[in-house]
Design a protein around this nucleic acid. Structure first.
Length: 893
DNA sequence: TTTTAGACTTGCCGCTACCAAC
DNA sequence: GTTGGTAGCGGCAAGTCTAAAA
């Protein structure tokens, strides 16, 4: 990731007020492996050069990657096209290669390992060097810019580790190389920070592995996905697991005060920033064309890609399967399913014709007549009152019952329905158990239904819903995503949401606005006597219907097409193309913000540091939030108390991010960043904004000056995808399909860690681990017996009696040896399973696969390594990523 | 310039069907 | 047949970001 020398030099030329830019490196588990394996290094190098440095078939255009991107948002001609600077030629990159080499593999190994065990990450500042031990311009390390974030900085590892105390060195346990041979680099080649050997005790306690939660110290339990009470609450209706407790929310340092920003004009973009683009290296066939323009040639490249596509047998088999299914659907339809036809043709136009059947409503409430008790006595409720009481009763076994806000909000809304003079005045005296028990019985009844009964119900439902499931967009039959209107219920806001427990009222047709083609028949309202709120014919949007969110009336709930639709696919593709484009700009961007760390302009400095954090830590942008939302933060809304500088240059992050997921991480940063954070904090209180001169609009406006269409979230996609790409190409070394799938999962896991995708530890996790341990112990006992029997058999003695006291079969030594080997293998497998389970208990792999990993990387990798795509993508993902299936096997992100 | 509305993506959770082990 | 485990999927909350309005 380091800023390459070429970029650095150029910027330095422009320097007026600022110090020499700092070139920084991040420690890397990947590079350590690269360096420890020269062969791997070599191959990755040649690929890299092909991708960046030499004429090579442009996989991007081959696959028609750029379609639609930058629609109407061309880079103005006054801006320098991202032409590769001569400074970035192999010769020039040599200097950066040298700089990169300053990061010792040993340091990498160390840093990676320490990260795994919860210690700080090492981001290494590398001093400007005139030469290095390797002058090989093709050193894969010549620019870390194209390297995956994880490879450069396993930051997330420590973060997750801090949440998940028992992870330990998961990479090795999961099948990666258990140890990396130490490289014999001299100390001189090591970065200064490494020489200083920064290694705090932070997180060391986390390195201990616990077999069960019960064995963990409280601190470890607290850290684990933020719930200290999780396991203790099992089987108790009133104490069910939550993402985090109130105390944790407090500990995460969320300020109750909302942000009041200073009015600062958006930052002027100076000529130095403009230079970012001029320094981009683009050495494709169309070198002379600015990237933004090249992206405007979608149709042709799409055709080209179809014409030259070489789908391997492996993938085509899976495609055939998918195609067969779609054919079946198409048979019933006169419409053509094609992802090649771009929807809409005009500016902002998303479709030309749109036909659909509207939405389906949940069935009306069926009163059950079960009475709640008030002060121990049954109370009669009207159906409407009972409906709301039931909503509450069915939640008795959730953690919401421990949240006063939830109860207060519920009571406040229920009281409105009960009426002022109702006997029920206080929730305290209400006993909802009768309804709760009734509901449990109903659930049980449903469970006990025969398969046949269940099937009938399912078919009936399908029959009812079939017509709502499809829309016809520009003559193409497409699946609708969420055609079911949300049923009424109690709002389940996450974290400490101030509106949790409020009644989400029933949505009626008169709440719903339908969007449909002008000439299309207006969907019939499914509830007799009622009608839609409004009919629109807006072809600049993709929604089919919307209604106002009953909890936040100024917000909307939309009905969109399904993820597998052409429209969504197109948008997905554009997203990934934009991220790929960032690859060409990233080194200049990094050079630019590195330089601005020392800027005297405070806004500029804050933008630089914020961009650095977004890039390096994959933080979200962090929009402003209202008082009636959970108090979570992102980069721009970080509070002083969320970032603690620990000298000499460690930043300790602790805050609640999206969905109130706790982000904890300790990282070593550039000294300049460290000093800047200290400066931003000085004179402020804990709840004050760290970046008081900044908000997402300013940040994104700035980013757009650096690359067309660039926003904060693009960094997440970029870093996730490039991590996957690099890890797959580096780590796939043959073996059978199962082994290759493990490699994929490991890469996927790294991305999930980088993005802080967490999941709640399953309720049965401890029990499962316990069971696994018991089984392992059993096998070990058996192994011991077998060893004894073998020794006896060799002496011609009969085996000892079994545990049940019965005599065992007399086996010969060969048979016993075979049994011993089998048992050993079983134990090993179980140990591996145990570790994997423990390792992934808080990591959610799905989110990154769905949202951040360019599917073309996966498809191309599957083709190259003959892995059936179904091993990686499930049915939904296969449908969602149809557009990526014909990618050339040589595709690299 | 700031705020708000609107449109869309991202992300976690719980339910369910399915499968393997016993 | 029962049980335990989990992949897959839908639901819906909660983000990001743009553009229009104030």
């Amino acid at each position: 990731m380091a800023v390459e020398a070429c970029a650095k030099r150029k910027l330095m030329d422009n320097t007026d007020e600022d110090d020499e830019p700092l070139v920084f490196k991040r420690s890397s588990s990947s590079s350590k492996q690269n360096q420890s394996n020269p062969q791997v290094q070599k191959s990755s190098l040649s690929q890299k050069l092909d991708r960046l440095g030499r004429p090579m078939p442009d996989v991007r255009s081959q696959n028609g990657q750029s379609s639609g991107l930058q629609k109407g948002k061309m880079v103005s001609s006054s801006k320098s096209p991202p032409i590769k600077s001569p400074l970035c030629s192999p010769e020039a990159s040599n200097s950066s290669a040298k700089a990169s080499l300053l990061r010792s593999p040993e340091a990498n190994v160390k840093s990676s390992a320490t990260n795994r065990s919860g210690n700080v990450n090492l981001w290494m500042k590398v001093e400007k060097r005139s030469s290095g031990p390797s002058a090989d311009p093709y050193d894969s390390d010549d620019s870390e810019d194209d390297k995956p974030l994880s490879a450069r900085l396993p930051t997330g590892l420590s973060r997750i580790n801090s949440n998940n105390a028992s992870k330990g060195s998961s990479a090795s346990r999961l099948g990666q190389k258990p140890s990396i041979p130490k490289q014999e680099n001299s100390d001189d080649e090591k970065p200064l920070s490494y020489k200083v050997q920064l290694k705090t005790n932070v997180g060391t306690s986390s390195s201990k592995s616990y077999d069960s939660d019960e064995e963990k110290p409280l601190a470890a339990k607290n850290n684990e996905n933020g719930s200290a009470v999780r396991d203790s609450g099992l089987n108790k209706p009133s104490t069910v697991l939550s993402k985090r407790s109130a105390s944790e929310v407090k500990s995460a340092g969320q300020a109750s005060m909302k942000k009041h920003k200073l009015s600062v004009a958006s930052v002027p973009i100076n000529n130095k920033q403009a230079s970012v683009k001029a320094e981009q290296k683009v050495e494709d066939d169309d070198d002379h064309v600015p990237i933004s323009q090249r992206l405007k040639i979608p149709a042709a490249s799409d055709k080209k890609s179809s014409a030259v596509k070489k789908v391997t047998k492996v993938v085509s088999s899976s495609l055939n399967k998918t195609n067969k299914k779609s054919k079946k659907v198409m048979k019933q339809s006169q419409y053509i399913k094609s992802s090649k036809v771009p929807p809409g043709s005009g500016e902002g136009q998303k479709w030309t014709t749109l036909i659909h059947n509207g939405v389906i409503f949940p069935p009306p409430y069926q009163p059950h007549g079960v009475k709640i008790l008030y002060k121990g006595k049954p109370v009669d409720l009207t159906p409407e009152q009972e409906e709301v009481a039931t909503m509450f009763a069915v939640m008795l076994d959730t953690d919401y019952m421990n949240k006063p806000t939830f109860k207060e909000n519920f009571m406040s809304d229920w009281r409105k329905i009960l009426g002022k003079n109702h006997i029920i005045q206080s929730l305290e005296y209400c006993d909802f158990t009768p309804i709760y028990e009734w509901h449990q019985k109903e659930k049980e009844k449903k469970k006990q239904m025969t398969t046949e009964e269940k099937k009938t119900i399912k078919e009936d439902k399908l029959k009812q819903e079939e017509k709502y499931m499809w829309a016809i967009v520009d003559g193409v039959k497409e699946k609708v995503g969420n055609f079911r209107v949300e049923p009424p219920g109690l709002f389940r806001g996450r974290g400490e949401h101030p509106k949790m427990g409020k009644l989400k009222k029933r949505i009626r047709p008169s709440d719903i606005t339908i969007n449909i083609g002008k000439d299309a028949p207006i969907p019939e309202c499914p509830i007799r006597g009622e009608s839609w709120k409004e009919i629109r014919h807006d072809n600049t949007v993709t929604w089919l219907a919307f209604w106002n969110d009953p909890i936040n009336p100024k917000e909307f709930k939309y009905v969109f097409l399904a993820a597998s639709s052409t429209l969504k696919g197109q948008s997905d593709k554009e997203k990934y193309e934009k991220s790929r484009l960032l690859k060409d700009y990233i080194q200049g961007i990094r050079a630019a913000y590195t330089k601005d760390f020392a800027s005297k302009d405070l806004t500029k400095k804050q933008i630089a540091v914020a961009t650095y954090l977004i890039d390096k830590l994959a933080l979200r942008a962090g929009n402003e939030k209202d008082d009636d939302e959970a108090d979570t933060v992102g980069c721009c809304t970080l509070k002083v108390e969320n970032v603690e500088p620990i000298p000499p240059n460690i930043l300790k992050f602790d805050f609640l991010g999206k969905d109130s997921i706790r982000y904890q991480n300790e990282v070593e940063v550039e000294s300049a960043v460290f000093r800047a954070i200290q400066q931003f904090r000085s004179g402020k209180k804990g709840g004050d904004d760290l970046f008081d001169q900044l908000d997402t609009s300013k940040l994104n406006a700035h980013l757009k000056e650096l690359m067309p269409g660039l926003t904060a979230k693009v960094f997440r996609t970029y870093n996730a995808s490039i991590t996957l790409d690099e890890m797959l190409s580096r780590e796939t070394k043959g073996g059978d399909v199962a082994e290759k799938v493990v490699v994929y999962q490991l890469a996927n896991k790294e991305v999930a860690i980088i993005c802080n995708h967490q999941r709640t530890v399953s309720k049965s996790h401890s029990a499962q681990m316990l069971r696994l341990n018991e089984k392992i112990e059993e096998l070990k006992g058996a192994l011991e017996e077998l060893t004894t029997d073998l020794a006896r058999a060799k002496k011609g003695k009969p085996p000892v009696k079994g545990a049940d006291g019965k005599p065992k079969r007399n086996l010969n030594p060969e048979a016993l040896e075979k049994k011993i080997a089998q048992t050993n293998a079983k134990i090993e497998k179980m140990e591996r399973d145990k570790e994997t389970k423990e390792d992934l208990k808080t990591v959610a792999l799905g989110t990154s696969k769905i949202n951040y990993l360019d599917p073309r990387i996966t498809v191309a990798w599957c083709k190259r390594h003959e892995v059936p795509i179904e091993k990686i993508f499930n049915k939904s993902l296969l449908a969602k990523f149809t557009w990526a299936m014909d990618v050339d096997p040589s595709f690299r992100f």
